[in-house]
């Protein structure tokens, strides 16, 4: 600010008028002693040393550094200074010092700057402690309004998080393949076990899938899983439940189908199709599959866990027998069938 540009005026302000305009001002005499202050400064400093004490003993100018004398302060008149009262280390001020006419000292006006929110709390300030033109109260208003809005947003996020968890909890679809998921299979299997209709369970596990992931990347792996899903849906009926129950594990629930020969045919057809190279970008993904099968009429009293476990056992026996095989639970390995065998 270029003070020389201001028009010369000749007027005097009494302490009350000065206090109303600048409640946080300080008047410093030519000897550096504090001669007066605004009402809010008085309130802040309460019983602490102020009037009659040396300005630089009461306040410390932090920036610009090296401002320790009135002469130095006068040389920087009109520039922004950062300071605090030594007795109130937690309350920072931003200020401006201007020389009084006739070399009678300086007028220093202060504000809390952005620290106003803390200052209001720490010193129990009210509207009356700010000049009518001061935007401090508006700033407090905005801070509080913003906090209220943030609280609403936090509450909204919590509600959305809760709704999302609930939705995930209830979801029955495997998002990658669009097949049913483990939860959906459990529900369908429980219904099948409780129902009157016989049914079969097929447990299918991909072979060489890890190699696809490792050599061609996860995008290729995901593409393979989606292609497998297409094959499984194409080779089963619409009322069969086809579920992806693990990374590359699938279970198919086939209501009303318990003929071992037909089950074996279906499984072999699936395996044959999964052995066909799957194009991905410029290359081909090559996988195979092993299948374990069981069916409800093989049990006196079918039970979901037992049947899943038996299908799993049959699957691993198929894996051990060489990949691309079907093993039927309850039927000894010689009765098993292998693709191309």
């Amino acid at each position: 600010m270029n003070l020389a540009c201001l028009p010369q005026t000749d007027f005097q302000l009494g302490p009350e008028a000065l206090g109303a305009l600048m409640p946080l001002h300080l008047v410093v005499g030519s000897d550096g002693k504090l001669l007066g202050c605004g009402p809010s400064m008085q309130k802040l400093m309460e019983s602490k040393p102020l009037i009659g004490f040396d300005f630089f003993d009461v306040f410390e100018i932090r920036r610009p550094s090296g401002l320790g004398t009135l002469a130095a302060l006068r040389a920087r008149a009109g520039g922004r200074i950062y300071l605090h009262a030594r007795a109130l280390p937690g309350t920072g001020f931003r200020g401006l010092a201007v020389p009084l006419a006739g070399g009678r000292g300086m007028l220093v006006n202060l504000s809390f700057g952005i620290g106003v929110v803390d200052a209001v709390r720490d010193h129990a300030l009210t509207d009356a402690d700010f000049a009518a033109t001061d935007l401090a109260v508006e700033l407090l208003y905005v801070v509080e309004a913003k906090s209220a809005v943030m609280q609403e947003l936090r509450d909204l996020n919590l509600r959305l998080q809760g709704a999302k968890s609930a939705a995930e909890e209830q979801a029955l679809t495997d998002t990658l393949t669009g097949l049913r998921n483990r939860r959906a299979l459990d529900v369908a299997l429980a219904q099948a076990v409780a129902g009157p209709r016989p049914f079969a369970l097929m447990h299918l596990d991909l072979d060489f899938f890890k190699a696809v992931n490792d050599t061609l990347g996860h995008a290729a792996g995901d593409h393979v899983l989606r292609s497998v899903a297409d094959v499984l849906l194409a080779e089963t009926r619409s009322n069969d439940t086809v579920a992806r129950v693990g990374g590359d594990e699938f279970v198919i629930l086939l209501p009303g189908l318990i003929d071992p020969t037909r089950l074996e045919q279906i499984a072999l057809r699936i395996i044959a199709r999964l052995c066909e190279p799957i194009p991905f970008e410029a290359s081909f993904c090559r996988i195979a599959a092993s299948v374990g099968v069981t069916w409800s009429t093989a049990y006196e009293r079918p039970d979901a866990d037992t049947m899943l476990n038996d299908a799993d056992q049959a699957l691993y026996s198929a894996k051990r027998a060489g990949r691309g095989c079907v093993h039927l639970h309850n039927i000894q390995p010689p009765g098993s069938a292998a693709l191309g065998a």
């Binding site: 709390r121 129990a124 109260v137 509080e144």
Partner: peptide
């Protein structure tokens, strides 16, 4: 009713 500028108060 009382009104304090500072929310915490």
């Amino acid at each position: 009713r009382r009104f304090d500028l500072a929310l915490k108060a």
